[in-house]
Design a protein around this nucleic acid. Sequence first.
DNA 1: GTAACTGCAAACGCTTTGCACCAAG
DNA 2: CTTGGTGCAAAGCGTTTGCAGTTAC
Lengths: 146, 146
Amino acid sequence: MTEQKRWLDLLEKNGGRLTTPRKAIVELLVNSNHALGPIEIYDLVRKQNPKVGLVTVYRTLDLLAQLGLVERIHLPDDCHMILRAARGHEHAVLCTGCGRAEYFPGEDISDWIDRISRESGFTIQSHWLQLQGLCEDCQKLKEKVE
Amino acid sequence: MTEQKRWLDLLEKNGGRLTTPRKAIVELLVNSNHALGPIEIYDLVRKQNPKVGLVTVYRTLDLLAQLGLVERIHLPDDCHMILRAARGHEHAVLCTGCGRAEYFPGEDISDWIDRISRESGFTIQSHWLQLQGLCEDCQKLKEKVE
DNA sequence: GTAACTGCAAACGCTTTGCACCAAG
DNA sequence: CTTGGTGCAAAGCGTTTGCAGTTAC
């Protein structure tokens, strides 16, 4: 079963209808390796389906986030970027130049979290570990400009 | 030298004037252990100085962020929360109940970052490591409600 | 005195809501 | 056929900008 089919099945199982806009947005996001903003998603989807409205993009993104298929990523300047969700204990590496995203298996930091929890008295619910940098393409681009 | 004096000196050295609104905002933030939003800061400052405008709060926060005295923190729902900046290699633990923030000395994850950098081809510029949970007070509050 | 800073009001851009129409099942 | 989904327009909200008046130095 392709990942795309998994998304559509999950959507249908949760009482959703497989409409044209939804299928188009899923197709765009399921194999994307870029963090995209709502407007970017809107523009990209409209290249194939010019009728799709921005509101539907927002509503579909909410839906996909609720199903855990998509994550809201924060960058220093852009909040609310959308990226296919991590599977298991992956952590994101994001390109500050072009938004390109890669996931990497996460180091086990549970010992450290236990220590912090003990020392601070906090009950830890979740953690964010995210790296920012430049992907190979944006490094080359930068060298050319300089 | 108090931390507050250090902030005001740094502000002055960079060509800024020590105005009433700026001093009030610095006084509020320098020893706060809560992540605060702009409107919260505005409300708190106005309790002592009712004349201060929201625009000045925004502009002062920009200034303090540029000087590295303050950091913009992201939470799952609230972006652009303001917190006194980490000193050295600290990482934040944030309470999802009340916004309370603590800093903890960061584990050395440079080996791991090197590995990711090699494997992905990314040049890593920075990383975010942030824990979310409930502080002791909010845990007690939660127990009472349940 | 003069340049930096302030506060107000208006502009702005992203996101959400209300509602009549449409299409998936 | 039914009801969930859509697109449009308008409202909402946080943030930024323009500008005349004010204050620090």
